[in-house]
Structure formats: structure tokens, C-alpha cells
Design a protein around this nucleic acid. Structure first.
Lengths: 202, 202
DNA sequence: ACCTGAACACCGTTCAAGT
DNA sequence: ACCTGAACACCGTTCAAGT
């Protein structure tokens, strides 16, 4: 067989991504193999390598979609009149809920480590930054006298903190705690951190 | 060939762990395979399965050693006269420095996810708790009026926070920041969190 | 009794050869 | 031109068979 031309490369790409995402959601990253993705879309493995550089490339594109969805969730239902502090806490809640409701796709983002020879592409970094920027913008009104670099450091510390709680919670490294406990821990982190960050500004 | 009896199973176990750790340190977890470990100690793959249940079991034992070393680092050079707040910050520094100086072994602890059918053994959980207890004990004098459960929640939030910063720092998810920036972020997290946690107690 | 090594069921990745 | 499918170089894990 050969020369089927049933689908354009663009179409094959989208089909492969959709199939890969379904595998990830259902079985986690251990279940994702090139052969499975290929057979799911009715092509052979070789075809996948016509469309993606390798499996890492495919994973990166799944992660890009995941970041887009997360960004959507974080900016959706934005209620500008809300008190800023609540808005920040809400962002944390959204993140944690996202991680719990879609643990495999969420975990995939952090399982991927950039190798030395293939550095993270710019389009990917940009998507990651876009999510992060939401936090930074929300934090700003809460400490108006802080410099831009202080704010971005605070957003970093805070978000990494939420993320760490999420990880240890989901991977059960803190014992068998549910989403509610994780939410509480995150809230405690944010409230106490903000108390220091907002009050002690120049 | 067969029946060599050059080493007891105990000895083979130790040799295998040592060889595996060297591979991890030098090549990271991707480089760790049962065949490599076996050939490194002069036995065949099969022998490894006489001594470990599987590769996961072997990794768990490496992680146990890593946790022991981390605990050692955190309790070594304890200077009781030091101000408590500095001691806590020092713990954070030790953790971050540890992660940076031994990134592969550190990462291995968090790459391992407990599967449903093989839950984390008690002896492992105990070792993880022992590290965590150091944080909790150090935190206690800083907020003497907090309840035990508030303290343990705070230790959780704080430590998970440090850990999150560490992860995002080392895996370059915050851009290409060095150990110094990570240390600063962690310090910012601890100082601001403590400010809220100590001052707002009943 | 202790260990081997070959086998099984998989991988990611490549690329000559079919249509 | 487009895709195949067989090949290569690996995996983790098992277990009959050698000494």
C-alpha cells in the first residue's frame, strides 16, 4: 500500500493529536506510544514521523493545547468588580481544580524535560508565559507600590508554591489528601504570603 | 554457567544499588535500565529480579537512600542557638542546594508515582515523613500559639512551596534561572508567609 | 541452589521499496 | 508523492534449563 492521500498532513496532525490526547487522558503518559497513536488514526508508525519530528514534539503540542485550555479557564468568568485578593485565590482554585480534574494532561506538562540539544521552542515558552502573566496582572493591584520586578518575583514564588502543593497533593507525597485539603493548603499559602507581601511594602 | 555464589544476595543488592545510583547521577533516570545495572555489576538481568521485585522496587530503594542523605544534610550542623526564623530559611537553602547539586537523584524521587496495585510501602513513607518532620519542628517555635494541625498545615504549604519553586527552577519552566534566583524566590516565599503566619495567630 | 540466557512482548525511530 | 512495513537497536520481565 501507499499513496492514500485520504488526509492532508494538517489533518493527520490534528487526528494524531486528538488520538494522543485521548490516550493520555485515559491511560496517562505511560500508555502513550507512537504505535498506538498511529493505529488509532488508521495509519502506520512511519506516517507519524512525517508529521512530527518525534514523540517529544507530539507531546509538546499536546502540552501547548493544555496550556491554552488552562489559560482559557483562568481568564473565563473574569469578574472585574471582584475584590483583587479573592480573584487571586480564585486563580489558585482554578489551577488546582484543573490539575485534579485532568491529572494526566496536567502532569504531562511537567514530565517533559527540555533536552540540551532540543531546547524548548519559543512558541511553547510564549504559551507558558501567557498563563503566568494572568497571575502577575492579578497580583499587581494588591501591592501597587512594589516594583515590576518585585511583582514578578512574587508571582513566581506564589505560583510555584501553588504548583508545588498541587504536585505533592496529587502524587500523594503528602499522604492521601483530597482536592479539598489541597485547596486549603493553597489558600493558606496565598493568604499568608499576601499578608507579608502587601503589608511590608515600602 | 550458573551457581557462582561469589556474592550473597545482600551483597548483590548493595552492588546493584550503587551501580544504579552512579548511572542516575551521571545520566539521569532515562539512562537507568535493568540491563545496564546488571552488566555493571557483572551479573545478567535475570539476577536483578532475584533481588528486586522490579525496576520500580530498585528505584524506591535508591530514593530511600536519597531521602536519608537529605535528612542528614538538614539535621547536620544544627545550631540550636540560632534564631528560629533563620533556621527555617536555612532548611530551605539546604533543600534547594541539594536539588541543584544532585538534580538527577533529587528528580528521581518525584518521577516515581505510586501505582494503584503497588502502593508505597510503609518504610518509604516513614523516611519521607522524617524529612518533613524537621520542617515542622523548626516551624513550631515561630508560631507557638498555633495548634498542632495548623502547624502541620503550614509546614506542608511552606515546604510544598519551596519544592514547587525548586521544580520550576530546575526544569527551567520559569526561564533560565540559576540557583541564586531560586534561593531568593524561596526566601521571599518563606519570609512573607511567616510574616502572615506568625503575626495573625490568635 | 544459584544463576543464566534466551524468549516474549513490547518500545522509538528510520528508510528502502511499493503503488 | 505518499505511505508502508520491515528492520534496527533497544526496553522490562520471566523462566526453563544448565552446572
Amino acid at each position: 500500500m501507499a499513496r492514500r492521500n485520504d488526509h492532508s498532513h494538517e489533518e493527520i496532525r490534528d487526528m494524531a493529536l486528538a488520538a494522543a490526547e485521548q490516550i493520555i487522558v485515559e491511560q496517562g503518559s505511560d500508555g502513550l506510544t507512537a504505535r498506538k497513536v498511529a493505529s488509532e488514526i488508521g495509519y502506520t508508525v512511519g506516517t507519524l514521523y512525517l508529521v512530527f519530528a518525534n514523540l517529544d514534539d507530539l507531546i509538546m503540542h499536546i502540552n501547548a493545547r493544555t496550556l491554552d485550555r488552562l489559560h482559557q479557564l483562568m481568564t473565563d468568568g473574569e469578574t472585574p468588580n471582584r475584590i483583587e485578593k479573592d480573584r487571586l485565590i480564585q486563580l489558585g482554585q482554578i489551577y488546582i481544580h484543573f490539575a485534579h480534574s485532568d491529572p494526566h494532561r496536567w502532569a504531562l506538562i511537567f514530565e517533559h524535560r527540555p533536552s540540551d540539544d532540543r531546547p524548548t521552542p519559543d512558541w511553547y515558552i510564549e504559551k507558558a508565559m501567557r498563563v503566568f502573566a494572568v497571575v502577575e496582572e492579578t497580583l499587581q493591584p494588591l501591592a501597587p507600590r512594589r516594583t515590576k520586578s518585585e511583582l514578578s518575583q512574587a508571582a513566581c514564588a506564589l505560583w510555584a508554591g501553588i504548583h508545588g502543593i498541587c504536585i505533592l497533593g496529587i502524587t500523594q507525597k503528602l499522604g492521601d489528601v483530597g482536592e479539598d485539603s489541597v485547596q486549603e493548603l493553597a489558600k493558606s499559602l496565598m493568604v499568608n504570603y499576601l499578608s507579608g507581601f502587601s503589608n511590608n511594602q515600602a
